[in-house]
Amino acid sequence: MTGAVVVEGLHKRYGTVHAVRGLGFTVGYGEIFALLGRNGAGKTTVMEILEGFRARDSGRVDVLGLDPGEKATERTLRERIGLVLQDVAVEPYLTVRETVARNAGYYPAPRDTDEVIGLVGLAGLERKKVRALSGGQKRRLDLALGLIGNPGLLFLDEPTTGFDPNARRSSWQLVRDLRDAGTTVVLTTHHMEEAQELADRVAVVAAGRIVAEGTPATLGGRDTAHVRIRFALPPGTTVDDLPVPAAPGEDGLVTVESAEPTGTLHRLTGWALRRGAALTGLRVDRPSLEDVYLRLTTDDHGTPENRPERSAL
């Protein structure tokens, strides 16, 4: 047992569709781990196998030391994990407090109902019927149901979809606080900002495999990738006048790619100062997590040089 979640050589087929093809990853205790990937890449299938909703075809899956496909330990596992599923599913006619209190009764050592309602930001709405809640509020109620059992491991499937920016920020803080208190979190998301802000580690799933894995800052070689320097050419100059190779862009800005931006910038700004010109709109960027993600997932078969070879079929 080396992690809260250990997946090795996981395979799952639906009829002729080979949805998960030898996928593997490990989530350490107390870590926030994000699975990224396009719709249909296989991440929901992986989550549902981890959550015990689907059976796998082959491979090893270990969740808090238990096999989620094992009937005999199912209840034990359910007592220790919390789930926030993609679809909001709550009884419309109960109040917020009744909904949370009902689920609290299912767990051997639940958290305090009112405390959890406060944590997810629904304080003051305890007596409101679920059907009268907004979409974002229902989603937060779902989060409360995921937390009420005081789980050691929390699965969040696109947890902040439909949240306004304030609710999203406070939910991120809540998830960080849970992590700091020792909870392991596995989440899926389509928001790169969410992965960037929240995850300790991310893995990109494409065509049923992990194509890249790392911290948000280093994923896909982000930290060592070329820096992009962009600016508008001073009037009366052309790309050929610049001291470094540059490419004109569609928006009138030129782009200079550089492996050592300090020197490149020095040469560029020196050149501009000597001419008494300004580099209008000067920006220095590293590829964003979204750039890396798009590069990794645009071809859904995965770029070969980035695909770590896992167990063969």
Partner: peptide, 14 residues
């Protein structure tokens, strides 16, 4: 249909 049953299944309630 609306996923309430799946939510029940996600809890330890036998």
């Amino acid at each position: 249909e609306n996923g309430v049953l799946k939510r029940v299944r996600a809890t330890p309630l036998p």
